[in-house]
Design a protein around this nucleic acid. Structure first.
Lengths: 264, 264
DNA sequence: TTGTGTGAAACGATTCACAGCT
DNA sequence: AGCTGTGAATCGTTTCACACAA
């Protein structure tokens, strides 16, 4: 998962574990789907399958929220939807601003998933004067000069940064100074923010690199695992080598110390 | 982070912990920046700061790769860049396909971050016949009918799904059958895939919900923390309540069983 | 003297397995 | 009889603190 956060230590009592919080939206989505099909109750086993986790974990997660199930029966779908929504703070309407209306920012602005669950795009902001006034997703883009005013007038506490990496830190500082306390960062940079501000990051290229790591590993162990995937994998041809090893004194490596691609 | 994965159990010996793998791209990015400024060596303390982690963690992470530092001195930047790149499999060139060329898919296709680190967009695929042939990011969109052919001819093992939720499962099945073994999923659905296939998901709306949770919590404890953020937070006005509680029998809740937003 | 590399301790998350309620 | 709720065991990750190499 694309993820990382800055966080006040969970000194707070009665805290719900962070790992659990991160799964609540998953449960909520599965429950919403059941609700739309008018399913009245669901067991931990069924719901867990729909959310892609195992049932023991799900029950433990729910136990942090309270005793919302019925032994021998399961969970009331509507009731759980409400309880989780409330716990996540989705019974409120959260205005968000998107800063940086390039390809990605525009895609985010057009993304329907926002509105569906308590989030409302309050403003689109971009530093390019040529963008100002242009409608994106049926909403005029506003100039960065007015950032502070926009934040304050709309009571925005959540900001989405979709600017180039170079601008992200400065944008985050302005957002925070104006009152934003949660940031979703799409720019490939580490933001440094004061205590009490939450940052979550989504980074495309990091996710791909993690996949590449596992992909590489699969290639190196072809035999073993006789899964469908392994069979399918054999169909793809190996990609070409490209990078050049850096010189310098060699140190101990756990396994191939010598560059694997271009032998020393 | 936006994140989740399907994974073969790490039965494999000499495995690098998953948490460490997830941080390697972060270190790599920081190191690349240092390399561009021609910084020759860096200490764990400095590099950790640049990557946004603490130095003990960084040293432990590197210890899984091998002994690449010099006591009393630090790490050789170029050498470390190479070692981490190799470990992540970035000394190879990975062709990827993007399926679903809507707003998001187009934004991903245009995103420069791909090419910069060993990834190459081999094809853009969409189910809409009207899209076929249209150029996006300087590349003609191809029709889903040719998906299998494209995967095989380009030796693609990594697929990016940016379709609507309803299409994602089916697309993943076709990708996998054609030889893809790693998927980056932007569609808000749980994909079920066979063993040996890695899935990572990026979900906008989940990230926002996690932020909302913490945001709500901050609002409920205003006093305490005298941080800059808390002061700034006071500036934003509270958002309005919207959702309605579901009826049904009340069960035990840990704290406010009664809806928090509309006091009982 | 400086800063890495790493055992050992502390912490957090997951899984097990079953008591207890419906 | 069935399924939740949860202590206890397990596993993975982070942090501590210091021996050791340069």
């Amino acid at each position: 998962m694309a993820t990382g956060r800055t966080h006040r230590p969970a000194t707070r009592s009665r805290g719900i574990p962070e790992a659990t919080v991160a799964r609540l939206p998953l449960y909520l989505r599965a429950l919403t789907a059941l609700s739309e099909r008018s399913v009245p109750t669901v067991s931990s086993e069924e719901l867990a399958a729909a959310a892609g986790v195992n049932s023991a974990k799900l029950r433990k997660d729910f136990s942090y929220l309270g005793s919302y199930g019925t032994r021998g029966v399961g969970y009331d779908v509507e009731y759980l939807v409400y309880q989780i929504s409330r716990e996540l703070g989705l019974t409120q309407d959260w205005p968000v601003v998107i800063v940086g209306i390039g390809n990605l920012g525009a895609a985010l602005a057009n993304y329907g998933g926002f509105a569906s669950r308590g989030f409302r795009v309050a403003a689109l902001i971009d530093a390019d004067p040529a963008m100002a006034g242009k409608p994106v997703a049926g909403m005029p883009v506003q100039h960065t000069d007015d950032l502070e005013k926009i934040i304050r007038e709309n009571g925005v506490s959540i900001g989405v940064i979709a600017t180039p990496a170079g601008a992200a830190q400065q944008v985050s500082e302005r957002l925070i100074a104006a009152g934003v306390t949660s940031i979703l960062n799409f720019a490939p940079t580490v933001l440094s923010v004061p205590d009490g501000v939450d940052v979550r990051k989504v980074d495309l290229s990091i996710e791909l690199q993690i996949l590449a790591f596992h992909e590489q590993r699969k290639a190196g162990e072809e035999p073993g695992a006789g899964t469908a995937a392994a069979a399918a994998a054999a169909a793809g041809q190996a990609p070409q080598a490209t990078a050049s090893p850096a010189a310098g004194s060699r140190k101990s490596g756990p396994d191939g110390d010598v560059p694997a691609v271009m032998p020393a």
